[in-house]
Amino acid sequence: MDMLAGKVKRTEATINTMATRPDAHTAPDRPIRINAEDVTVHYGAKQALFGISIEIPDRAVTSFIGPSGCGKSTFLRCINRMNDTIEGAKVGGTITLDGENIYDPSLDVVELRARIGMVFQKPNPFPKSIYENVAYGPKIHGLARNKADLDEIVISSLKKAGLFEEVKDRLNEPGTGLSGGQQQRLCIARAIAVGPEVILMDEPCSALDPIATAIIEELIDELRENYTIVIVTHSMQQAARVSQKTAFFHLGKLIEVGPTSDIFTNPVHKQTQDYIMGRIG
């Protein structure tokens, strides 16, 4: 509880000063991990995305912002091919991960999703125990040779997600019994357990209260040392706090992309400016 309180204090400070970390706003000169070129998405006859091209750097947080319905989540779901599960969705253009086209027919989508994990808008723990939730990914992918291996993965994943201390005495209780913020961290632990290289987060804090949000943001900041993170958010403050690179979407188009500090302090396009000033809903 003390730890939690400390985090809250720190977060309040963060909010007040709008990111104090030295590298928070500097442009990340890191190698490019994911490269999207001219990506389009159609749902049936309706076009949802128009020619999106963007580069996503390794071990940094890239955020997608924009008004609701602008296509930011749709694009995020293209990166691990979640759009495949929606009937009638058609994706055009190319997206490469480490130079490999993820829409290549020979590529196994199951394998791809093991490499690119995802955290969703609403915490969605499986109706199983906390332990089983985290163990599920390693189990299906055959990552653990025995029970000890599995225990190890589960515990280290929970630790990385900053949840272990809170749940270590009740690993066998249902995951749905946790609080919203804990559930979301459980989902992050679940994603980490598979050992992904990239983690996609689709508005991970939209269903959480400010305290839980602060904890998750803290966690994202820590995770970026080991993972490439892409986060969709409707909160500009959040994007400013956690990301190094920001992309602004509007009406299915990518309007502007650049280092987070530039986007927020010195936007090039008028639409971006309007959005940041609160003129676009």
């Binding site: 490499r115 992918h141 055959g142 990552l143 291996d149 190890e152 993965i153 050992g195």
Partner: peptide, 17 residues
């Protein structure tokens, strides 16, 4: 931990198999 720190290549091989 051994398993939790598998390199990504090792992990990919395991998943692939």
């Amino acid at each position: 931990p051994r398993v939790a720190t598998l390199t990504s290549a090792e992990r990919t091989r395991l998943i692939h198999s």
